[in-house]
Every structure is written in C-alpha cells, then in structure tokens.
Design a protein around this nucleic acid. Structure first.
Lengths: 250, 250
DNA sequence: CGGTGAGTTGAGACGCATCAACCCCAGTGG
DNA sequence: CCACTGGGGTTGATGCGTCTCAACTCACCG
C-alpha cells in the first residue's frame, strides 16, 4: 500500500479503507529519483501530483543571488505537490534531498475523485491545508525566534512528523540534511548553524552528526523553541511533548 | 454582490456568474466589527467561514511573551478563514485591523457545494492555496531579505493585491496599519521599522504616513525587494512591475 | 490641560554574517 | 598504495545590522 502513511492519524481526516483503496488506484506510476534532484520547476505546468513514499523532499524558492529559502520539507506519507492540482502552476521548485520513491497521481484522476467522492476530496483539501499550517509555523519560527530557537523548533517539528510516520522513536531520527540545508531552512548561514549545533550539544539538548538527529532532552528543546505540536493536527497526544491540546482551552 | 471581488481576475479560477450566484446564496449573514477585534481564537472549533467585504483583517500567532507574528493580511475579496472548513480548528487567531464588513458562510452550505458543484469546490480549494502561496512568499521575505527588503516586498505585495481589488491605483493605497504592525509582519522591532521607512523615503522609493502608502518608484522598490508577482496568480500583467510571467520560461 | 498612542531619534549592546583558515574523510585515479 | 580532490564540518577575528533602552515630539481626545 503506497498510500499507507497518507493522512494517517490526522485529526478529523484519516482515510477509510475504501478511500485508501480509491486513492491507491489513482496512482499511475511509481518512480525513484536520486538525491539532490529537481523534479518540478517554477512556472512549469503540471498534470500530475507526487505522493512521497520514501525519502525526504523539499520545496524551495530561489533568490536572484542563487541562494535558496526552503519553504517546506516533506517526509514519507506527504502529498508533496498536491496543491499543483488546483493551482496547475507552482510558485516554487520541488526537489529531492535524499534518494526517494514517489507515486505519481494524474490530475485527471483527481478530477474524478472530486466529482464522485466529495468526502475524500475534502480530505485531500485538508492535506494541502496542513502544509499551509506548517508554513505558518515556519513563519513564526523565522519571524519570532533567534537562531537556537529556530533550529530547535525545526527539530521538534521533524521529530513529531517523523514519529507520526513511524520513522522516529521520539528521540532519534535520520534527516539526510547537511548543516548548509539547515541554514536554508532557518534563514541562517552554514557557519552560524554550526555554532548553534555546538550550543545545543553543550547545553545537552540535542546532537546532530552525519545527518542524524538525537534529542537528549525533548522537554527543554520544546521549551527553548516555544514548540506546540497542535498545528500538525496529530490525533494522539505525544509523550514528552507538552501541547495546548491537553490543556483546557483559554 | 458581496462575492464580487472573490477570485476576481485570478488565473484559472475566476468564478462564472452561476458560481458567483451559488456562493452568494451560501452567505447566511453580513456583519460589521470594529478595529482591533479578535474574531476567532486558536483551538476553537468553527462552523462558518468569513468572506471579507470591506476593511483589512489579519491572522497571527502569539508567542509566549505576548508578541505576535502576523502570518497573513487580508484585503476585501479574500475568504479569510475558508481553510477552517476542512480544518475545523485553527492554529492561529483571526482579527480585524480596521473596521470591517464580513459575510459569514456556514460550513453546512459548503458541504452542499462540494457535493453538488465540484468545479466551484475546486475554485474554493484554489483560494486557500493562493493563501498558502502567499505564506511561502512571506517565508522567502523573512528568511532571505534584510529589513529594507522585507518592508519593500510587503508593500509591493499589498500594492498588487489591493490594485487587483480596485483599492490601489498602482501607486497609492490605504493600509490601516501602524509601524508596530509592520514590525509584526516583517519580524522587526517598531523602532527599526521607523528607520527603514526613513531610508525608503530618503531613497525616493516610497513614503508611509498615517497608514497611507505612496510608492514613488515601483520598479526600484520591486528590484530592492526581489519582488515577482507571479505567486499572486493575477490574470493580467501589471504595468510597471516586472514579472517572470512575461519572460520566456527558463 | 493632562493623558495616551504613534512616530522619531540617539547611544550602546549583541547576535549573526562575513572572511579566512584548517581538519577530516570518502572517493578517485595514477 | 598513495596523492589528490572536494564536500562537509569546525573554529577564530572582525564588521555590520538590528535590538534595546531611553528620551522626546506631536496629534488627538477626554
């Protein structure tokens, strides 16, 4: 089942087994790509969307000096460019970070789904809005946090998302990123990322070695990052990570 | 027609007159609110969405020190929290900047639309993805631009969006924002916003006085901001503002 | 006429960028 | 087998951009 991880455990949007079947049948092709490959360019019309099965992918915007800003990072189970279905043309590039396996879904089959299965269509819509919620958390990260806070916030997010995909045990996970990549995510230079990593290491919060993240103290890391996982719309509460979901509202 | 401005002139998503009629009939209520009012709180379930008719609204995330990061700013014609329809619960707050007039659309009526009018549903979906594209441009702004570039980029964006809504002549428009608000948008302190404004004024690019923006030199402002309006998905080309839409692709 | 919120300006501190070395290690080819 | 190469990571010195704190103006309003 290629669609196994898609929307798994998401609050109010988990797929029924029939819906999963329908989506599975909408896949036209499964492909693999090498690391650091650009799969879709800005301004180029797309007629299919990409479900990520394995590996890590990115979406990024280039500035005129050849520098990049990552606007999203995707883990297995994410529908990377489902938003290309209504938009048709993208405002950013889509690429691989690691080697990946992806499933392609032609937009014509998504037409059929929106016509015949409005409830499944609503869940696909939900999926793209979850990406938008993550965008907003990234805006908060860049606008309100200092360098250490940004990296800490990013690690907390990836820990939760990878754990939901069954790819983190809540403390350790592989990312396939370099320190330079972290810089393009957090709006910092590679050199400063390095100093941030040292500080996080010396403070006993987490270590990053050869693209492997190990979180030593999840609570302090989350506090340093002002991280609250509610925006990820995960159904079950997460051990060790405080969430306003578990506290009374207002 | 309350829905008159919604998706007007958007590439590949303009409404037909029948669709506009359907949406118009989905409105249950038209209300007004005063400036600086919070209309929806984080974590609170919503059963209607809000179409902005007149005024400026914001979406923002609070940090634990009482500081805010704005994640979106809405102009007349925007469906401010349409994403609350699939999501049900928001990850941020929704509030007014100026006095506003809004139209409320119950989610039950959106259910009917997605069941009966898949093409209109796709356009509603498009609308929420346009907001996500704007989120991404804001990420680029915060991650890659310096203080002057951020403010310049924001002004360029608002100029284009307000012009598309018929509320800017391409040079002058009202925003209803203070310098402190600009700080919460651009991730800067009010004091520094003030210095940035002085620099933009002395460089002859634009002036900001009593929440009124006047752009003296649109080309230089756009260049300073690395601004390309393609991400706003406006159908017609914009006089005076360079766009890669008008250049050959790659 | 005192109060309040927005805007303005200056001085000093601090966080991050920049520039420049240097190390380590995995490939690669002679 | 070893020299070479290049990418990723590490560290130091220095400079600049933005923050912080503080004072002051001005317009508006009770």
């Amino acid at each position: 089942m290629f669609t196994e991880r898609f929307l798994r455990d998401k609050r109010g949007a988990a797929l029924t087994s029939e819906e999963r079947e329908i989506l599975e049948n909408a896949i036209s092709e499964v492909k693999t790509f090498g690391p650091r490959t650009t799969l879709a360019f800005t301004g180029e019309p797309l007629n299919h969307s990409t479900l990520l099965i394995e590996g890590i992918m990115s979406r990024h915007i280039d500035d005129r000096n050849g520098l990049r800003q990552l606007v999203a990072l995707h883990v297995p189970g994410d529908f990377v460019d489902l938003h290309a279905y209504p938009l048709k043309i993208l405002d950013h590039e889509v690429g691989t970070m690691t080697a990946v396996t992806v499933a392609l879904v032609p937009h014509t089959r998504l037409d059929a789904i929106t016509r015949e299965y409005p409830e499944l269509a609503r869940k696909l819509w939900f999926s793209t809005l979850l990406d938008a919620a993550i965008h907003r958390a990234w805006l908060f990260r860049l606008g309100r946090l200092d360098a250490v806070g940004r990296v800490a916030h990013f690690f907390c997010e990836m820990n939760v998302r990878l754990a939901a995909a069954g790819l983190s045990d809540g403390r350790r996970f592989a990312l396939g990123l370099t320190q330079a990549d972290l810089g393009e995510i957090c709006g910092l230079t590679p050199v400063h990322i390095n100093r941030v990593m040292r500080q996080l290491r010396e403070d006993g919060m987490c270590v990053f070695r050869s693209s492997l993240v190990e979180i030593m103290d999840p609570e302090r890391l989350a506090a340093r990052a002002q991280f609250d996982p509610d925006y990820l719309y995960i159904a079950k509460p997460l051990p060790g990570i405080p969430s306003s979901q578990t506290r009374p509202i207002r």
